[in-house]
Nucleic acid binder design. Structure first.
Lengths: 335, 335
DNA sequence: CCGATGCTCTGCAACGTTGTAGAGTCGTTC
DNA sequence: GAACGACTCTACAACGTTGCAGAGCATCGG
């Protein structure tokens, strides 16, 4: 069906290796021969069979991106950035969804489907520090997120603690004193929730404000509905607060909605700050002040680090690459 | 490095073909032999080299999904559904972003990178009816969207006209009479905007209400900012209206925000309805009434149709597969 | 006891490509 | 004018897998 090197060689009247040489830019070919081959390629509409080429070379020209779920806005935007960065390097991206299920995440690392790719950018949401061992995989991998540190691979992530501390300090600087938190994870020690909560505590401490457990709203997931639910609980508790730190934007947006339903004005009565820098946060009512943790940089850096590992250009040990953050000041929490 | 059939065969003391037979479930193998082979596989951690298998079989076990941009919520959710449906069939998905650029869309169809896949699910946003010819590709393809009809391939899409008519009729039934539109495309004849606008006109006609050009807000893109801008223009025009039909949810959310800033109450003063059934629409303030055009069904159907074509099970001509829609009644437009 | 049948396993070729090695031709150099 | 190197092109093998054909053996029916 599709034309192969053999077909082109026959039409051009040369050996298949010569055709291969033309395609791969081998320099020592007579212009006339080269022309004949190129004409034959055009005539037959030949395109190389990448599968065969890959078998020969051991490379596939594709990388895998594993993340919890594309319908979560943060991961969709991350994926968009990763795919764009990969495309710029001529690499295709195969996307796998794990649903944040630790079993599926473990399974994925052993999946033969990854054989279709040269390496993996992995953003786990179910695995934890105790699973660091399973990250020892026989292919290049770059880890994203903050579930696992000191693993055996490169790791690109954000400055969760510092960024959360900065977000909290920002609220404090604007005069808020009772800052509620939405989205903490009960008993968690690792992961974004724990790190961001730590940043929050650090900022309070620096300001000499005591930590008040009553101000902390716990959730199991980080969906909008969880943010809403968590805020309802806080309101029901009848504690006073003049600001809310949503541990991500989606939570903050859900919480903000509930605040408004309850008749609290944002930002007059309660200031709200989020975390993630989602595009979406710019268009809520009021627009959401948030921390951009450097998503774009993370995507680019992860792709480049992975490609370096694949090409074997780097033989350093596991690298930890940290993105810079910045606070996007909007209406929900003016400075 | 990685173990191959040869290694397993050596360890198990059988021929490589026997190992292959065990892996592929060939029935006539002695249990003892099978056990030895399986032990060897486990010992070596062997996983089949899919590239080689694919070269042999001519299949890759992956499909490509080409869409404008994952950071657009509709496409992110569509991709999530497509990947889930593909995974259920044991197929990987390679995602390509075209940025809605007609040149990149055309280029994509000729890209050798597609050789890594068995077929393509293609959602164009730049190509138009005049490009139907370029869809004649030498691999299985399923078309999504409403830019091109009567192309040479299967086509899965939504009932844009009927759904938009139903949305408009819904507003009319709730007593609204002056319904503004946000997101029309100037001079467009094909594509979602044109079809949905057509449905709007049809519903007006049925109700005996004249079409008023002053109520139509035009935009170039369908981002939130465009919905906001378009609504500002409508307000500046100083025409009366008691409802807004956002040609998609993102536009509707942008428009709703501007309405509220301008002091109009939703839904008391102005009812708002969207189109797409985004998860996000459920959590706005007020929550957005919208039309779910059957996204989930579209994703599943597209994957299954493509896999049918790939396996050659179907030899029918191009099929047009239409999803059912339903109106999700929420706060922004009560019945 | 023979041929037929079924079970178990094997060797070879092939998928389309590229790396290695080398053959043949020509011009250059000493 | 012989040796050398550069240029142009080719043959072969190999990447790891599976389809095909068949070998060797046991079992069974007549």
């Amino acid at each position: 069906m599709a034309a192969t090197l053999h077909d082109v060689a026959r039409v051009a009247g040369v050996s298949i290796k010569t055709v291969s040489n033309v395609i791969n830019g081998y320099p020592h070919i007579r212009p006339a021969t080269k022309q004949r081959v190129e004409d034959a390629i055009a005539e037959l509409g030949y395109t190389p069979n990448l599968t065969a080429r890959n078998l020969r070379s051991g490379r596939t020209g594709a990388i895998a991106l594993a993340l919890p779920d594309l319908s979560l806005a943060y991961f969709a935007e991350l994926a968009a950035s990763v795919i764009a960065a990969a495309e710029a390097s001529g690499v295709s991206v195969l996307v796998e969804q794990t649903g944040a299920d630790p079993d599926r995440e473990r399974e994925l690392l052993r999946s033969p489907r990854l054989k279709l790719t040269d390496g993996l950018i992995f953003s786990p949401l179910g695995l934890g520090q105790e699973d660091a061992a399973v990250l020892k995989v026989p292919f290049p991998m770059v880890l994203l997120g903050e579930r696992i540190f000191d693993g055996p691979t490169d790791h690109v992530t954000m400055r969760n603690v510092e960024a959360a501390r900065a977000a909290t300090a920002y609220l404090l600087a604007s005069g808020r004193r009772r800052i509620a938190v939405v989205g903490a994870h009960e008993g968690e020690i690792i992961g974004s929730a724990a790190l961001r909560l730590q940043g929050y505590r650090d900022a309070l401490k620096e300001a000499g404000i005591p930590f008040d457990e009553d101000l902390i709203g716990y959730t199991t997931f980080w969906h909008r509905a969880n943010g809403a639910l968590s805020m309802r609980e806080l309101l029901a508790r009848d504690v006073e607060f003049d600001a809310v730190f949503g541990l991500n934007d989606t939570l903050a947006l859900g919480a903000m909605r509930v605040l408004q339903e309850a008749g609290r004005h944002v930002p007059e009565d309660v200031a709200v700050i989020g975390f993630d820098g989602l595009d979406e946060a710019e268009y809520s009512i009021p627009s959401l002040t948030t921390v951009d943790p450097g998503r774009e940089w993370i995507a680019k850096t992860a792709v480049h680090a992975l490609l370096e590992r694949i090409s074997g250009d780097v033989d350093a040990g596991p690298r930890l690459l940290l993105a810079d953050f910045r606070i996007l000041e909007r209406e929900s929490a003016p400075a």
